[in-house]
Amino acid sequence: MKKHATAIKKDREWQKFRYKRNRILYLMLLPGTIYLIINNYIPMAGLQLAFKKYDYAQGMWKSPWAGFSNFVYLFKTKDAWLMTRNTICYNAAFIALGTLLAVTVAIMLNELKNRLAKNIYQIFILIPYLISMVVVSYIGYAFLATDAGFLNHVTGGSTNWYGTPGAWPFILVVIYLWKSFGYNSIIYYATVIGIDGSLYEAATIDGATRWQRIKHVTLPGLKGTILTLVLLAIGKIFYSDFGLFYRVPMNSGLLYDATMTIDVYVYRGLTQLNDIGRSSAAGFYQSMLCFAVILTANAIVRKIDRENALF
């Protein structure tokens, strides 16, 4: 009986102790939770602005409802189609070419025998990742400026690159690849290193050539990572790197057809045209499409290969 009583007492103390301990843990969660509510969740609620007629005096929450008028207004313009097309097409090109380049580089790094060279290449290809899009714009300007640009200087031409929309799909893809391939290569390379070495040995014993080993060991080993990264990228297919599409082309009006993505449109609407209605409608359109795309993509991957789904 006495034993039982002490057990209960102990249990209660334990409960109390646990409660106290957890209280501290929850307290630790508090600052981050507040930040996420402010930075992420309130703006989600603020998406309702897309259905309102924004009134400066009344602010985001009290402005009068306007039904779908912002959307009607948005989709009447050719901009809606243009920015959707640009955003999706650029991202598709980025995903396809970016993955191809990064995987190729990772495999080449892995096949090299010289360790020092491997490290040096890794260090250098990451450099473009370290700088901001503003600095990229300066480098771009050094290459593309009409009078003094390196490109015109070398070719002897006098093309006004900032006024030639036809060139920009190419320029933007090159800049994107330049800035991001090192980062992605390193992710893929890390996965390649993690592949079980005995698989390679077995393949070599079986007389596999280098290409056969790459095809039958390395690429299957990379499949999971490729799927995950592509899935993440597809989830962001309606987003674009604002700096790349706005800053690098110098916000040049002549290039809008080739450079306007949803993010650029939203920013321009918000700060330059003061067209909050259309801007917020475009933002809503982007958020919803993105959410739908990521859920769909994830569901598909889950069906094919559960392990590589995000959730």
């Binding site: 939770t33 996420l36 402010i38 930075n39 992420n40 969740y41 309130i42 703006p43 989600m44 609620a45 603020g46 998406l47 602005l49 602010g59 985001m60 989830g235 993010d263 939203v266 920013y267 918000l270 909050i276 801007s279 917020s280 933002g283 809503f284 982007q286 958020s287 993105c290 959410f291 990521i294 859920l295 959730f311």
Partner: peptide
């Protein structure tokens, strides 16, 4: 609660208006 912020967000306009006006 954390993970969801990776899937969905409010975008620039509400974020900007909230930070500036509120």
């Amino acid at each position: 609660f954390v993970f969801f912020t990776m899937l969905f967000n409010g975008g620039l306009v509400p974020t900007y208006l909230m930070y500036v006006n509120t």
